[in-house]
Nucleic acid binder design. Structure first.
Lengths: 233, 233
DNA sequence: TGGGGAATTTGCCGTGGCGCAACCCTGCGC
DNA sequence: GCGCAGGGTTGCGCCACGGCAAATTCCCCA
């Protein structure tokens, strides 16, 4: 059955691990589907928070934009991850914009539904806390990197992290599974696309990575690790 | 009664808002007290996560240290706030160190107790998600500032934030209520104490702040706001 | 009241990396 | 098969900051 398949998917979502099947069935019944084409926007920064989503397939990017127009990439979302966490925390406006990178497919719920389910089933609320705690922790790490490391180390750490999260083994090395431009890396590491480009060129020369148009393959992860940890200046 | 007073305190803690009194009584009964003198360490980075705390009075600082010895200040904790969030998210090691800045007084619980209460009372888990979501959001803001702003703007934003969180009206302006050195500000803004010192000196000259040994008073918050938003370079 | 040490200030110099500008690729649409 | 637009590369000059070093101030404590 269609429903059974949906429930299997929900069971593997980060927010619903360990939640009993009847509750998942209830969630399934209350959900709707949302499809996005590459480039479509799910929320825009400042939009009222009224819907919650879980990614089924695809990849999305969450960004924050300053009044001056500078952008920062907060995170990438893949299958099983949630979009619209403000629903869980009682926020009223989305802190960032969420955009599909590939064609994507999501489950959606009205905010009130999820808030109600979370109140009635502690397991969901416990998961919510765990997921948000993990994201909080990730941000602590990035903040520390940004505060204390040089650009090259930050890019190395970021590329390694992406390879770990969305890496795909290929003949030439670990390929990052979604389109990733120089600009994107710059917005993740607090630098400019120029500096990222220079850095990747240097790495390419040493055979550490193989990169091209919106594409990065890590050939020698060990060398990148060394780069990232470089205690020297 | 002593117990009644404790329950009143718990009622105002961020993690327990809206939790029914009988549950608070249960929490009170299971809690122990912890006292710290200024400078005492509550957890050390990497310590196993086995206890959870709520600040009653005092002020603590959470820091993360890199293998190279560089430090970053993650946040300050004041009355009503929780220390040891990893207990809520199932972490096994503390991601940072927590140190008392003033003599402080806390409620403590074994990790298992809090985890159990959270599972049995969804309201607590919902609050946990809300608090962690808020901390996550704060970190997004800091990350964005660190990525896109110049040092002077970052210091301005940070000082304003501290004044808002822990400000105390005095004749000369808003005083930050706990000892705050140049080094501390540097560790919050990703710069060096030298640069912070130069910046504060310049502000002092313009009458925007009044600062001294581990002490900062904001005299003209409006001028600082302007500084922080400076669209020009 | 006289150290002593921590916090702060300040000058000077070196430089990482940003801004700008020009140019080059490459894949896609027509 | 051609053109074009969105990425990417690279050279050059500059400057905001970091590093280093030395002096000064101020609080705490004996």
């Amino acid at each position: 059955m269609e429903q059974q398949r949906d429930i299997e998917i929900l069971k593997r979502a980060e927010l619903f691990t360990g939640v009993p099947t009847p509750v998942l069935a209830e969630l399934q019944a209350a959900s709707f589907r949302k499809r996005l084409a590459a480039g479509d926007v799910l929320f825009r920064q400042g939009d009222p928070v009224d819907t919650f989503y879980i990614v089924i397939v695809g990849r999305l990017r969450v960004t924050q934009t300053t009044p001056e127009g500078a952008q920062v990439i907060i995170r990438y979302l893949g299958p099983g991850q949630m979009a619209g966490y403000s629903v869980l925390t009682g926020g009223t406006q989305h802190p960032g914009s969420t955009t599909a990178l590939d064609d994507s497919h999501l489950f959606g719920w009205p905010a009130a539904t999820i808030r109600d389910m979370m109140t009635r089933h502690a397991a969901i609320a416990v998961n919510a806390a765990a997921v948000l705690g993990e994201r909080y922790h990730e941000m602590q790490v990035r903040l520390r990197e940004l505060s204390t490391e040089r650009v090259e180390q930050r890019i190395a750490h970021t590329v390694l992290r992406l390879a770990r999260q969305a890496g795909h083994r290929t003949a030439r090395g670990i390929e990052i599974a979604f389109p990733l431009s120089r600009q994107d890396l710059a917005e993740m590491t607090g630098t400019t696309l120029h500096t990222v480009s220079r850095t990747l060129s240097a790495w390419e020369e040493k055979g550490i990575v193989d990169s091209g148009r919106r594409r990065v393959i890590v050939c020698r992860a060990d060398a990148l690790e060394a780069m990232a940890e470089a205690a020297d200046k």
